[in-house]
Design a protein around this nucleic acid. Structure first.
Length: 417
RNA sequence: GGAGAGAUACCCAAGUGGCUUAAGGGGACGGUUUGCUAAACCGUUAGUGUUCGAAAGGGCAGCGAGGGUUCGAAUCCCUCUCUCUCCGCCA
């Protein structure tokens, strides 16, 4: 949720900023109008309530008093209905409005306008035709999509044998690495309450992207960002304990509606996938520095695994709903000859903190204010798995195990026996 | 899943329709006293949200959550959530 004062006091600036994030001008105008009405009517209502307090008798009211009380209460009731209606309208509009992009985010319409900031690693050159990760993985018996389609459905996977071990090794490697960097390890529920989904911005607008558990207020979490960020929902955190850094492994569930025919090969885009997530709670003045740190921690995983990647800054049109600024990390896929997203690191400023009511208490003056939240994938495990297969393949279709994973797998090479 | 008991502020806790502007205690903080500490005594302690205001400072809401009854609700009614005790089932 954006600070309502932005629309009230910096209307033109905020409006054009939101338009760059594809919000319709009508929506913004409607919000402004509703907000003004809500405030005016709210003041009138408070005034009436104040009046009634003065009229309250110490004991039983006399008939004259009673008549006056009844009249005032009747007015309050009508005004209250009006205010509640406006309040609901404002709240709904505010919840469906995305975060205002940070001024450092490049202005643009789509993915095409994202700005590449850096590249790391050497793109592997093979003296043979590079296979895609599905051929490699299925060929080595590491995962089975057909059986998963029978057991569950399409876009699900069953990892097997060394594939199962590689997936688990990656999770452990990522958790260990981030723990060493100062993140507190969390193992959260995979299921979250709808209130949490509202807190981080998945609801109410994007209900079609996630799975709801029928007849309950629960959802299958689309990212551990939801669990980790909402752990501090409704809390006031002492400034001295910030920054709070959490790392969690969790399975993530996404409907992937509207992606039919996209990334149908292999395990790149699944309804259920594993992800290691980083979340930070920080003081407002440090959040942009913390975004650099957070992105650096995600990059560390790619570097340690020796996977070539690039870092891009998302343009305003490509920014997620809740994000003010986002760096995507994209890893090289030899079979596609393209960099593909493997991590997304975002600063939400106080947008999620307002929705989820997460505040910090300043140590010098005891003032309470909204803190800033950030998160980043560190990394998407399934995509890391796929990238390792493709980048570490050999001519025979076997996979050289990256050095840092050897202690986890007790293997030098993954090959058919 | 069944039966029962709870939820009041930082903690404990009183409060069954208007005398509550939520008592009292503990703790915390400030002060008096003191060489220092403790004790004693005095005082402060409703966080937060929202709104009005340049500010100082006001208003409104808040007794687990949401509805309802009433001129008026912490208090009466309904629904829900969570905690505890017991029974059943279960990895």
């Amino acid at each position: 949720m954006n600070n309502p004062k932005l629309i009230r006091e910096k209307y033109d600036e905020t409006k054009s900023s939101l338009i760059s994030k594809k919000v319709s001008p009508e929506l913004i105008e409607e919000y402004k109008e509703r907000d003004e009405l809500w405030r005016a009517e709210g003041i009138a209502l408070d005034e009436l309530k104040h009046q009634r307090k003065g009229l309250m008798p110490k004991g039983k009211p006399s008939p004259e008093q009673l008549a006056l009380l009844k009249e005032t209460s009747e007015k309050i009731k009508l005004k209250q209905e009006r205010v509640s209606e406006l309040d609901r309208e404002c709240h709904d509009l505010a919840l469906s409005m995305p975060n205002v992009p940070d001024s450092s985010a490049p202005v643009g319409i789509s993915e095409e306008d994202n700005v590449e900031l850096s590249k790391w690693g050497k793109i592997p050159e093979f003296d043979f035709e590079a296979m895609d990760h599905e051929h490699l993985g299925v060929g080595l018996g590491m995962f089975d999509l057909k059986t998963a389609a029978k057991v569950t459905g399409s876009r699900f996977v069953i990892y097997k044998n060394k594939g199962a071990k590689l997936e688990r090794a990656l999770i452990n490697f990522m958790l260990d690495t981030h723990s060493k960097a100062g993140y507190e390890e969390i193992l959260p529920p995979a299921v979250v309450h709808e209130d949490s989904m509202v807190g981080t911005g998945q609801l109410p607008k994007f209900s079609h992207d996630s799975f709801k558990i029928d007849e309950t207020p629960y959802w299958l979490s689309p990212t551990a960002e939801v669990q980790l960020t909402n752990m501090e929902r409704d809390n006031v955190i002492e400034e001295g304990t910030l920054p709070i850094n959490y790392v969690a492994y969790a399975p993530c569930f996404r409907k992937e509606a509207g992606t039919y025919g996209k990334d149908i090969r292999g395990i790149f885009r699944q309804h259920q996938f594993n992800k290691v997530e980083l979340v930070k709670f920080v003081t407002p003045e440090t959040s942009m520095d913390e975004l650099e740190k957070l992105t650096g921690h995600a990059e560390t995983i790619l570097k340690l695994l020796g996977l070539p990647y690039r870092k891009v800054s998302l343009c305003t049109g490509d920014l997620g709903f809740s994000a003010a600024k986002t760096y995507d990390l994209e890893v090289w896929f030899p079979s596609q000859k393209k960099y593909r997203e493997i991590s997304s690191c975002s600063n939400f400023l106080d947008f999620q903190a307002r929705r989820a009511l997460i505040r910090c208490r300043r140590s010098n003056n005891a003032q309470v204010e909204y803190l800033h939240t950030l998160n980043g994938s560190g990394l998407a495990v399934g995509r890391t798995f796929a990238a390792i297969l493709e980048n570490y393949q050999t001519n025979g279709g076997s996979i050289i195990v990256p050095d840092v994973l050897k202690p986890y797998l007790n293997l030098e090479i993954i090959e058919n026996e």
